[in-house]
């Protein structure tokens, strides 16, 4: 298949996922009702209400979170040359969620937009900690070391979160709202701001892509090509923070998406990081929207959170990737 045809396929798949996300659910909204709902909104028509107040915000949240996690995962894997890197597995999601929960408990403002922005410092701290402890920034992080460092940071933050929740019963609701990994609360999330943050992260990723590629040749060689490794790594951490923070703020911590998407994107786009980033964003959104739609259907009328769906699919993918890794060798 030629290159451009593959890109068309990716876009078509994304469009299909978006269509399913809008149309399918406990109440199916027929395609014929979509356009009228947008241009001539009728607040008495249940189809219009469902589409505009529930499905559309949900679709936006899925696009933001899925795209952002796809980009964050691709940047992480390119930066660490490690196929097992993922914002969820490396504790960055947990850092963002923990910061939000802590802020909400301490400041007492539930669901307010300001709290959501705490996800950025949380993600930044967790990312910096994991990369420093796992040796990620030296570019020679063995996959085992980085993955275990992520598991340890995850376990630490989870213990802290469950301690907070058990100490303060009221915070259980905060926890449910922020740490669920789901698109169902999309209407109460700061979608516009987070779309901007994710967009900024994506743009920075595209800008940095050639430098990250140069860096993956090794620090010495990349310096010879005129790259400054320290700056590129710092920039990549900013991308990871912006994208993961935005994703957690709109959808909670969703693991494995950043793990699954990059290998698929590499297969489609070849080893060109800019193209890979674009495909990753589209595929991330596609998979998250499909997972969310499937989660609405499998146990209907009950919902399975999108984060659980991605984890159930993602676990086996992780194992398949881990089998291919040669431990000890710098990946």
């Amino acid at each position: 298949m030629s290159g451009s045809l593959r890109f068309v396929g990716v876009v078509a798949l994304l469009a299909l996922a978006m269509g399913l996300s809008l149309g399918v659910g406990v109440r199916d909204v027929p395609v014929a009702a979509w356009w009228p709902a947008l241009v001539a909104y009728d607040p008495t028509d249940p189809n219009h209400i469902t589409l505009i107040t529930i499905r559309l915000p949900r679709l936006c949240a899925g696009l933001i979170a899925g795209g952002a996690l796809g980009v964050a995962g691709t940047v992480m894997q390119a930066l660490t040359r490690n196929p097992l890197a993922d914002p969820g597995l490396l504790g960055v999601n947990a850092g963002a969620a923990f910061a939000i929960v802590l802020g909400a408990v301490l400041l007492g403002a539930q669901g307010a937009g300001a709290i959501a922005f705490l996800s950025f410092p949380g993600a930044a701290l967790a990312a910096a900690a994991v990369f420093a402890l796992g040796g990620g920034l030296r570019g020679d992080a063995g996959p085992v070391r980085l993955t275990l460092a992520g598991a340890a940071v995850n376990a630490l933050l989870l213990s802290l979160v469950s301690a907070i929740v058990l100490i303060q019963r009221e915070s259980l609701d905060i926890l449910r709202f922020w740490v669920a990994g789901s698109l169902s609360e999309a209407t109460r999330r700061p979608l516009g701001e987070m779309a901007m943050a994710a967009g900024l992260g994506g743009a920075l990723a595209l800008f940095l892509a050639p430098a990250i590629e140069a860096l993956s040749l090794g620090a010495a060689l990349s310096r010879g090509l005129g790259t400054r490794p320290g700056r590129v790594q710092a920039g990549a951490l900013v991308v990871i923070t912006l994208c993961t923070g935005a994703a957690v703020a709109v959808a909670g911590p969703i693991a494995f998406l950043g793990l699954m998407v990059p290998p698929l994107a590499r297969a489609i786009a070849g080893h060109r990081l800019r193209a890979e980033l674009a495909v990753s964003a589209a595929l991330g959104a596609t998979i998250l929207l499909l997972a969310d739609t499937a989660g609405r259907l499998v146990l209907a009328p009950a919902e399975v959170r999108a984060g659980i769906m991605t984890a159930v699919i993602g676990g086996p993918v992780f194992i398949a990737l881990a089998r291919r890794v040669r431990p000890g060798a710098p990946a």
Binding site: L84, L89, P143, V144, T147, L148, A151, A255, F256, L299, A302, V304, R305, I308, A311, V312, G314, G315, P316, F318, I319, A322, R323, V325, P327, G328
Partner: peptide, 27 residues
């Protein structure tokens, strides 16, 4: 099988078990 592969695969199984546990919990 090097022990490190066992550890990585085991971690993956642990993640999957955790996800399935949350899935069971929703029921």
């Amino acid at each position: 099988t090097p022990p490190l592969t066992l550890i990585l695969v085991g971690l993956g199984i642990g993640f999957t078990a955790g996800a399935l546990g949350s899935f069971a919990m929703t029921r």
